[in-house]
């Protein structure tokens, strides 16, 4: 296998991108862990990140996160296999329900994050 095999076909390239999403996501979560840790600095010492650089970093990570979500949920939906009354549920329906779950979770989490800020 030549080293640059994944540059030769777009499908391979997007597969590598898909796998690579884990790196920015991991970095962002490590930052998040830090954010939690900083809560021990006390009321006066607590300064959440808000630099432009951090926002740009988050935007980039978000793009990877969305790519991860779309690919992962589509693929997971394609392999899940349920039968109802001896008939398989069409995989488009399963994928759709995955995306619905994603939307619902986002709404709930978003609500908590914003509502309890008041």
């Amino acid at each position: 296998m030549p080293r640059g095999w994944w540059t030769r076909r777009s499908n391979y390239f997007w597969y590598i991108v898909r796998e690579f999403t884990s790196l920015p996501l991991a970095l962002w979560l490590l930052w998040f862990l830090l954010e939690i840790r900083r809560a021990q600095d006390g009321p006066s010492g607590y300064h959440p990140h808000s630099s432009l650089g951090f926002v740009i970093f988050s935007v980039i990570v978000l793009l990877f996160a969305l790519y991860h979500s779309v690919t992962f949920l589509s693929l997971a939906g394609a392999i899940l296999h349920f039968n109802v009354a001896d008939r398989p549920i069409p995989s488009q329906l399963i994928v759709l329900s995955q995306f619905a779950a994603w939307a619902a979770a986002s709404v709930v989490v978003g609500f908590v994050l914003i509502y309890f800020a008041r």
């Binding site: 076909r9 394609a78 392999i79 899940l80």
Partner: peptide
Amino acid sequence: CSFVGECSVVCPKGVDPAKAIQQTKL
């Protein structure tokens, strides 16, 4: 298998081996 999925793309007979593999894992 890391689910590249290209096996299913190139299959001339509409087999989805990638799916078979993930379902077997599951």
